[in-house]
Amino acid sequence: MTMRHPPLSDAALGIWPAYRRDVYGILVVFAASIAGYFMFPDSLALLTRIVSIALLVLSLDLVVGFCGVATLGHAALYGIGAYAAGIVCLRAGITDPFLLVTIGAGAGAGAGLVMGAVLLRTHGLPQLVLSIAFVQLVQEGANKASAYTGGSDGLAGMMPAPIFGMFAFDLWGRSAYLFAIFLLVVVLAILAVVARSPFAMLCRGAKEDPVRVEALGVSIRPVLLRMYAISGAIAGVGGALGMLATQVVGLDGVSFELSANSLVMLALGGVGSLYGALGGTVAFMMVEHMVAAINPFHWMTVIGGLMIGVVLVAPRGLAGGLDDLQRRMFGRNSETRR
């Protein structure tokens, strides 16, 4: 079709202009992850855990950053994904890592639908309280159902098969980390498409003004519920990855604490930005790792200080702060000016 008018957006110019920045972004993430493999060969377990939690924070960004849901219970979806993959691995004898991740994603999506159906009945403070209640209930449920979950001892003894039958989840964690990078890249690619879809625009609209979206002729709840399911699936992938990498699933995976920490990571990185969510997770967990090694009792103080610093200097998180810095250094341009 010939265009008889100036393009309305970059996306109107074609697939490459629309997704160019996402492709570059994913390549940078991929390169950095591979660099981590060679630079920190002794810390691959930590790096894998960072990727696993990063998937949780990315998934949290979908409901907080895109839909404006207030939640302090998002780890429920992560933990349910981990438990589902773990239980299936132990009891049903399914050991293929790809299949286990798929099961984790499915369980997370289902749990996301339930959690969304509960949380989307309200908003603001009541929503936040409901989300805490939800994660506490899930945790208590996991604690009581010890026949399946191992209760407070957790679930152990899973023996996932080697990836493609060749690369075992060994003590050094090489396979696990490379598998984690693979999952991260796939999830980022999917999210890049989702984030530029009409559906995501509606979610962003619903976050800003639900009345306007309804006046556009779109019911909000089904839209937000779908986003909750997508978010749950990604959290479930993160949980299943955690299970595969450590071969342990514990109650801390469905905790309020993990939920709250993931929200802090997201705020640190920048709400509403996928790369912000990644950066926030890496920054938080690196600081946690280093400071906890020096002083295991006061690492939270440092995180607190970091948080206050970010809020004061870059209220939109690390990603927003970098945005502002770039604009200040390279001048303003009318398309991106806020």
Binding site: A12, A18, F199, L202, R226
Partner: peptide, 29 residues
């Protein structure tokens, strides 16, 4: 564009590029 997509029944599509529908773009323009 969002409104036109709604009218066409495409506003909630996930596997589509917002702004990639040239008929909707032309009409919006």
């Amino acid at each position: 564009v969002m409104t036109i997509l709604r009218r066409m029944g495409n506003a909630t599509r996930i596997l589509a590029r917002f702004g990639g529908d040239s008929a909707a773009n032309d009409e919006a323009y």
